[in-house]
Nucleic acid binder design. Structure first.
Lengths: 153, 153
DNA sequence: TCTCTATCTAGGAATGATTCCTACATAGCA
DNA sequence: TGCTATGTAGGAATCATTCCTAGATAGAGA
């Protein structure tokens, strides 16, 4: 989703986040994609408009935006951290073949709870569901390739 | 759960995993705890009986055991990888304060599915639910401490 | 039980994501 | 508009994990 700079300014200030060109560009890059880019991918994208931007700024900014709740971090296995501009409650479908992450919005999944007997005194604030499998493309690719373990991730 | 070396031998061979003292010790260490230790914690534990063991062997062995399905890897946020000797289907309760991970066994959680409309052609093999919150200890600690963001992980 | 070989182990080096440090730049309050 | 707390760039540091390699060993087969 393309955002204009006024939108970004308003959102940032509402969360008490200082607005800089670099931050706006990073947030914009994240808002424009439904893939879940890594910090490095965002760095590469933003560098096209801001050739001087530092990788460090990208990391720092993602930390700021995450703490402000403007951005979400998604982690799959021990892979590199990925980021998601969609901060509504949602879940993920993860391809074990190509590591792509697809958003799943499903009200039923938002209602899950742990029985009191198993909660062990935890105060639960939220939950996240990850579905693991193979996307359509990787299923086709696997027809020719040898079987690999399901535990590979 | 304390396992004798015959049990371990049988399990390993059933999964075509070569048995060595180092591997048995690592697997034993994992079977004896319900916490979810990191590779380094396992290294420290095993080193007490095998002072010459290399950290590399721990990593390599955990990889072998994981591929064989004898061990599960659990990842929370972008934190260090943790391991779980419980390979039955189960889910996790994660403390945002102290990062402890507690197992949740709940048949209802094992039955989740994604609606066809959202599955986007994925063939789903499994799923995992993570509940995030604060354990009893951290709730008490927070009564005195200043509030921290829920997004911190 | 013995031999042989594929696989394991130890340990050091390499990798790569992320964080730390610091001097200069700037957003935005007053 | 000026001032100051905060952000940025960029280089160095950290640290989990992986790679590489020479010597050790599990276990299949004789």
């Amino acid at each position: 989703m393309r955002l204009n700079s006024q939108d970004i300014h308003t959102r940032f200030r509402r969360h008490a986040v200082r607005v800089t060109r670099q931050r706006a560009a990073i947030y914009q890059a994240l808002a424009e994609t439904t893939s879940h880019p890594t910090a490095n991918e965002l760095y590469q994208t933003v560098k096209r408009q801001h050739p001087m931007i530092s990788r460090n700024t990208v990391y720092y900014t993602l930390g700021v935006l995450r703490q402000a709740g403007l951005v979400q971090e998604v982690n799959v296995g021990h892979e590199v951290a990925r980021f998601d501009g969609n901060v509504t409650v949602h879940h993920h479908l993860i391809c074990l073949g190509c590591s792509q992450i697809v958003d799943v919005m499903d009200e039923a999944l938002n209602q899950l709870a742990v029985s009191d007997g198993q909660a062990r005194g935890f105060r639960i604030l939220g939950h996240r569901v990850e579905f693991h499998g193979y996307c359509a493309g990787c299923q086709r690719a696997k027809l020719d390739a040898p079987q690999r373990s399901r535990q590979e991730h």
